[in-house]
Design a protein around this nucleic acid. Structure first.
Lengths: 128, 128
DNA sequence: CACGAGTGGTTTCAAATTGAAACTGCTTGA
DNA sequence: TCAAGCAGTTTCAATTTGAAACCACTCGTG
């Protein structure tokens, strides 16, 4: 799933409201066969569904399932990191804003009490 | 960076304290040439650094830079999603816990006021 | 209602990437 | 001292990618 170049970008676009095959292809600039293959995989994994278009046309569109929408935090995290590290100086960038007040969205790793923590404050435990 | 199968897994292992080449290779089960190539790339991108080993041996080890450590939220998000969706039933899984109280770590997308939001509550704005 | 453009793919084929295995040279511990 | 481990590199076959051509269907326009 995360194991390739395009799947997460497709999911990101899906969160941005992109639903159509051709729109995805133009947006991402990937080959149509690769896009078709990735969409097939994402549908098979239950992250996207293919349904009839909502605009009345005979085409169909891809939308996120509940399982797919749960990737929101992943996309926000990657977007945040990318915005601060993947640009040099004056390149075009974008921000994720709250619909209501248009202030930037934030992402926090917290403990059970809701206090922000860093990687030093956490450890992994194997669970059988 | 996110554009391949192994880089994020290497970074995840780095957060788990894996620092040595051979340890990464055993853990991830990838070919040594691919691992060497990915480590080179990650170092070149300033996500990892290669330094002398801290255990006194003449070998060296890879550690996360500040830029790399800022990927913590991404790794936590992916880990959380994977734990709830990538296992069926009784397979081995792991949890990320707070060092102090051993309670699970959580991840939240919030607005500026700190209130949790979903993908419907946010939109992307292009900024020049 | 014909037709040119757009949609949503599949097929084909060359080029790039991956992965397994063998090989190398240095280090470590017994 | 010497076998095992570390940290790679090289080689080569197999898989994956990406560009381009092709195809069938649908839409809007005149």
């Amino acid at each position: 799933m995360i194991g390739d170049r395009w799947s997460l970008l497709i999911i990101r676009d899906a969160f941005d409201g992109i639903r159509r095959f051709s729109e995805l292809q133009r947006n991402l600039g990937l080959a149509k066969n690769i896009l078709a293959s990735r969409l097939r995989e994402l549908v098979a994994q239950g992250i996207l569904t293919m349904g009839p278009a909502t605009d009345g046309s005979a085409y169909h569109e891809y939308t996120l399932t509940a399982k797919g929408r749960e990737l929101f935090a992943v996309i926000v995290a990657l977007r945040t990191w990318g915005e601060t590290h993947l640009f040099e100086g004056d390149e075009p960038r974008s921000a994720l804003l709250d619909v209501k007040n248009e202030l930037p969205v934030r992402l926090q790793v917290t403990n059970a009490a809701g206090e922000p923590i860093s990687s030093d404050d956490a450890f992994v435990r194997k669970v059988s």
